[in-house]
Computed example of a mutant assay.
Amino acid sequence: MTKSNSLQICLVKTGPTTPFISSLELRPLRNDIYISPYGSLKLLHRVGMATFGTIRYPDDVYDRSWNTYESANALGITAAPNVNSSNQYELPEVIITSAATPTFSNYSFRIDYGVYNRDDQVFMYLHFAEIRTLEANDTREFDIIWPGNISTLAYRPKKLQIETLFNVLPNECEGGSCIVELVRTKKSTLPPLLNAYEVYTVIDLQYSETFSEDVIAINNIKAAYRLNILSWQGDPCLPQEYRYLSDRGLKGIIAPAFQNLTQLQKLDLSSNSLTGEIPEFLANMKSLSNM
């Protein structure tokens, strides 16, 4: 998941073979969910606690893929489809109308999951809804223990209303193994309950995100020289050995859009068929180095 409203994919040749792609599928999401100040997120697990088989579109309007929770220590329960799903995550109905509790009522609920790398930073989203009508003397209350994070104490799922909790700070899993535990409090007469959970790791991108203004400028340059997709190679944010605008058969003047690349340090327009005078704005671009 990216933090931007647009996405451009660049395949970079780093060896003797030519990179290629067979297909690319994107899923739009609301921009107010899965927000992380630490970078883009990569899905690790997405699980419905009391579902059967894989759930995707049309059950999930965003075509997220939900897998089944498989454990002998969980007991699935369901409810009539009258649970209020009005939160920004827009979960499938089968997710919000089903949940799981520990097989034995005095047990805690322990969710174990692993990460690919020992140093991965992890965000977890827990989806809760009290889908059962409780008796007058019943209470469902539990602590949510987030290792290495601020725990949520004495939590009570909302009656027939989905609610999503997530760790504000990323977790680092000791030894590559992660645990989140739902522990029944002394006041509670009922065991913990969970509808679904999602786990994401923070992607450590090697290169910084391109400024949106630079993307606009590059697209304007592309339009000015009528560069088609087959001749458009390279990326201004990638190493200099990958060619970009030199020897591209460019014709005409040096496009004014170049001046909008405010961080441009080196401009190589050699081996093209450009005409006209060198524009004054190039001399005023302080970022350009004298070489």
Score class of each variant (00 low, 15 high):
Thr2Ser: 11
Thr2Lys: 01
Leu11Asn: 03
Thr17Ser: 11
Ile21Ser: 10
Ile21Cys: 10
Ser23Arg: 03
Pro28Thr: 00
Asp32Gln: 05
Ile33Ser: 06
Pro37Gly: 06
Lys42Trp: 07
Leu43Phe: 14
Leu43Trp: 13
His45Asp: 12
Val47Lys: 06
Met49Lys: 01
Ile55Lys: 03
Arg56Ala: 14
Val61Met: 14
Arg64Gln: 14
Ser65Leu: 15
Ser71His: 15
Leu75Val: 05
Thr78Trp: 08
Ser85Ile: 01
Gln88Pro: 05
Gln88Leu: 12
Tyr89Gly: 06
Leu91Glu: 00
Thr97Gly: 02
Ala99Phe: 06
Pro102Ile: 00
Pro102Gly: 02
Tyr107Pro: 02
His127Arg: 08
Glu130Cys: 07
Glu130Arg: 03
Ala136Asn: 12
Asn137Thr: 11
Ile150Leu: 04
Ile150Met: 06
Thr152Gly: 09
Tyr155Met: 05
Pro157Phe: 03
Lys158Asn: 10
Leu160Pro: 01
Leu160Ser: 13
Gln161Trp: 09
Thr164Asp: 13
Leu165Gln: 06
Asn167Ile: 04
Val168Leu: 07
Gly176Lys: 07
Ser177Lys: 12
Arg184Asn: 06
Lys186Val: 09
Leu190Arg: 07
Thr201Val: 10
Ile203Cys: 07
Asp204Gly: 01
Leu205Asp: 13
Tyr207Leu: 13
Ser208Pro: 08
Phe211Leu: 12
Asp214Trp: 03
Ile218Met: 11
Asn219Ile: 02
Asn220Gly: 03
Tyr225Leu: 15
Arg226Tyr: 11
Leu230Ser: 09
Leu238His: 05
Glu241Thr: 04
Arg243Glu: 12
Tyr244His: 08
Arg248His: 01
Gly249Glu: 05
Ile253Gln: 11
Ala255Glu: 11
Pro256Thr: 13
Ala257Ile: 07
Phe258Lys: 00
Leu261Asn: 07
Thr262His: 12
Leu264Trp: 04
Lys266Glu: 15
Lys266Asp: 08
Ser270Ile: 00
Ser273Cys: 08
Ser273Ile: 09
Thr275Trp: 08
Gly276Asn: 07
Glu277Phe: 10
Ala283Gly: 14
Ser287Asp: 15
